Computed example of a mutant assay.
Amino acid sequence: MCGRNELVSRELLPGSSIPLLKRRKEISRDEAIRVWRETRQAGRVGCSPQW
């Protein structure tokens, strides 16, 4: 199974309730797993979908 992985950065502007898309980059599955591990080790936790 081959999927598409994207690394997305967003910024919440003061006074806005919707984050703005700052950057989107397509990455490999291995890179996505590496980024997820680093993010988890930095203390981030997952959440349920927000839509």
Results as ranks from 00 to 15, higher is better:
G46P: 01
E6I: 04
C47L: 08
C47H: 11
P49W: 01
A32D: 11
M1V: 06
R24T: 15
E38H: 01
P19G: 10
N5L: 06
L21R: 11
N5I: 11
L12C: 08
R44T: 13
V35P: 00
L13E: 12
Q50Y: 04
T39V: 04
D30W: 03
I18F: 03
G46D: 08
R4K: 13
R29T: 12
M1E: 08
G46R: 05
L20P: 00
D30H: 03
R23Q: 06
K22F: 10
R10T: 13
K25F: 04
R4I: 05
K25Q: 14
E11Y: 09
Q41R: 13
W51Q: 03
R37Q: 13
Q50D: 08
V8D: 00
E26M: 02
W51D: 11
L7Q: 14
S17Y: 07
P14I: 13
E26A: 01
M1Y: 11
S48R: 03
L12T: 14
Q50I: 03
E11G: 01
E38W: 01
Q50P: 02
G15M: 01
L13I: 14
M1A: 15
P19S: 11
G43E: 05
L20C: 11
R40K: 12
N5W: 14
G15K: 10
P19V: 13
V35D: 04
Q50F: 00
E6W: 02
L21F: 08
T39Q: 04
V8M: 02
Q50G: 01
G15I: 06
P14L: 12
C2A: 09
R4N: 03
S17M: 12
Q50T: 04
C2R: 10
E6L: 06
S9R: 15
L20V: 14
S16T: 05
G46H: 01
A42S: 12
S48G: 06
E31L: 12
R23H: 09
L13S: 12
S17P: 07
G43D: 15
R24E: 15
E26Y: 03
E38G: 07
M1H: 07
G3N: 05
N5T: 09
P14H: 06
S9L: 08
L12E: 10
I18P: 00
L12F: 11
G3E: 06
E26V: 08
A42G: 13
V35G: 04
I33T: 03
C47S: 14
P19E: 10
P14S: 05
W36Y: 10
G46Q: 03
R44K: 14
I33A: 13
G43N: 01
R10D: 06
K22M: 10
I18N: 09
E11W: 14
E31Q: 11
P49L: 01
A42I: 00
N5V: 09
L12R: 14
P49D: 05
L7Y: 12
E26P: 00
W51R: 05
R24A: 14
E6C: 08
A32W: 05
A32G: 12
T39G: 09
E38C: 00
M1S: 11
S48K: 06
G3L: 09
R4V: 04
G46K: 02
R37K: 12
S48T: 14
I33K: 07
P19C: 14
